[in-house]
Design a protein around this nucleic acid. Structure first.
Lengths: 222, 222
DNA sequence: TAGATTGTTAATCGATTAACAATC
DNA sequence: TAGATTGTTAATCGATTAACAATC
């Protein structure tokens, strides 16, 4: 009954931003990327970036930096983003729609292949190239397609019910944007996104943070 | 040039979920809330919750718990959510739309009063009761309304430009959903939301986490 | 060589967890 | 009283930061 913890969570959370910056550098033709450059972009201490890069196992070149392309691949591999993960998404409201339309996910190996909703006005319509299916067909279609992940964008009132149904259909990992903590059988992975969490941190910064008197920078990644 | 850190960031991030659960308990008529009950809901250790509650300064009753209503107020006050913050939102796409429609923000003291977009098809339309204004009118309107916060939901390619414009218009705090790290003058607060960060953690869980062999629970709040 | 940056070890800091007496 | 839970102090753990030799 012990609780599982993923080690290096803070580092893992920084990885996507590294990746984004590194891909940009690559596209601009930069053969090498130094921790100094990446750190400056993110308002971080270079030491943090160096430690994080070392997690990938890749080794850089003193005085120069890391080979940009190699580093990109190393970060991808570290996150498991070099393999494809299929996902179904439930709830094609504005949030669901935003996620489906987020092109960068494709680069991260996330492929949303199935979309469900219960709204008759939405069912049958096509969203970013995906047909929206009736949620009543969910069990059958999910059992057939066996997506790795389910992305929950349903109202919080029905999230638990939908999640239960998906577990019965064989889904073992959830990315939960609904505003509830799901109760799940052991062994099912859940990543909950609490959108208000970021606002809480911003509120704390407003309350206690930089008051304009100091000339300090604030890292924007926590 | 030292970097400012907000202390207790992990605790602060948990607060919105506490608040959500506590409000639910209050609505169900529960006069008292114990850390045990709240912790169980979130798959956390009760000690964590107790330490977090103590940050608010409120003191509970041994053997019973905390007065639910008092605790709600204490958490609100701790986050500064007992005062109203006005915000303008730029970019009325699906993500912006989702945020405007998120009713719970009102309970957290966040009032999105101004909405801007550059798309002629959107300008003039009404979204969740707010008229969408032409982004070219932004500077004038923001200078007049003086919102505390700007919520950025614009494409990453123009986020910096929009942010610069808003700083010139007097905005000093940003909630940035665009996929770029903004460069800002000292003293301007930025909270960046990296949506892919959660997916990175989920990917790591899939790669290294519970493989179904163990009967362990996984806290879903990191 | 001088300058920049890496990789690694050790020090510090802060968050989590454990232990337990106090209280309803 | 017995059971549950709080509040606090101390121990542990892990992440960040500092220091510095090694290398291009």
């Amino acid at each position: 009954m012990a609780r599982i913890k993923v080690p290096n969570t803070p580092s893992i959370r920084r990885m996507p931003t590294y990746l984004h910056k590194l891909m940009q550098m690559r596209d601009e033709g930069e053969e090498f990327a130094s921790t100094t450059a990446v750190a400056e972009y993110m308002n971080l201490d270079p030491i943090i970036v160096r430690k994080d890069f070392s997690l990938t196992g890749l080794t850089g070149m003193p005085g120069v930096g890391y080979k940009t392309k190699e580093l990109i691949e190393a970060v991808r591999h570290y996150l498991g983003w070099d393999r494809e993960r299929t996902a179904c998404l439930v709830g094609a409201g504005s949030l669901g729609s935003a996620l489906i339309g987020h092109e960068e996910f494709a680069e991260y190996g996330l492929r949303i292949t199935l979309v469900f909703d219960s709204d008759p006005a939405k069912i049958g319509r096509v969203l970013h190239g995906r047909e929206i299916f009736d949620v009543r067909k969910m069990r059958r279609k999910v059992k057939a397609a066996k997506p790795d992940i389910a992305v929950l964008c349903v109202p919080s009132s029905c999230a638990q019910m939908v999640a239960d149904e998906l577990v019965k259909s064989g889904v073992r990992a959830f990315w939960n944007f609904a505003n509830v903590s799901l109760r799940m059988p052991d062994g099912i992975l859940v990543q909950r996104e609490v959108i208000a969490g970021g606002f809480a941190v911003l509120s704390a910064k407003l309350l206690r943070g930089a008051d304009g008197k100091t000339g300090d920078k604030m890292a924007d990644c926590d």
